[in-house]
Simulated assay, not measured.
Amino acid sequence: MTTADPPHTRRALRRFHVLAMLLCAIVGLDTLGSVAANGSEGLTWPAVLGLLFFAPYGLLIVGLGCLLHALGTRHRRALVRASSTPASTSPSTPTLSG
């Protein structure tokens, strides 16, 4: 006996997504096993190199996100919508120009 999904829900993960996640999990666990076979050095160096790469990259992305905050599409649409209403004439409402 099958039951239909409620109308307000939406299936986000399709068969392709589940297979892709399964493949990534298998490859990740297989890689972790082969790296662990090299001993503690095999786990330490990838962790150190990952931190040395991802920490500066993360800071760069955060900096760009803060710098270009007003150019984001969600923010821009919300600001355009807010600036088109009559109630947005107060000086405290953010605009695209400032």
Rank of each mutant, 00 (worst) to 15 (best):
M1N: 09
M1R: 12
T3E: 09
A4L: 08
D5W: 04
T9L: 12
T9N: 10
R10I: 12
R11P: 14
A12L: 14
L13D: 09
R14K: 13
R14S: 14
F16I: 04
V18P: 04
M21A: 11
L22C: 12
L23G: 10
C24Y: 11
C24V: 11
A25L: 13
L29C: 11
D30Y: 05
T31I: 09
L32D: 12
G33V: 06
G33R: 11
V35A: 13
A37G: 14
S40K: 15
L43H: 04
A47G: 00
V48L: 02
L51A: 02
P56S: 01
P56V: 00
P56A: 03
P56H: 02
P56R: 01
L59W: 00
L60K: 06
V62P: 02
G63H: 02
G63N: 02
L64K: 05
L67M: 04
L68G: 03
H69D: 10
L71V: 03
G72A: 06
G72F: 09
G72N: 04
R74I: 04
H75M: 09
R76P: 06
R77S: 10
A78G: 05
V80H: 14
V80E: 15
R81V: 03
R81A: 14
A82W: 02
A82C: 05
S83R: 05
T85A: 07
P86H: 14
S88D: 05
T89E: 14
S90Q: 14
P91G: 15
T93D: 08
T93Q: 12
P94L: 11
T95D: 10
L96Y: 02
G98P: 05
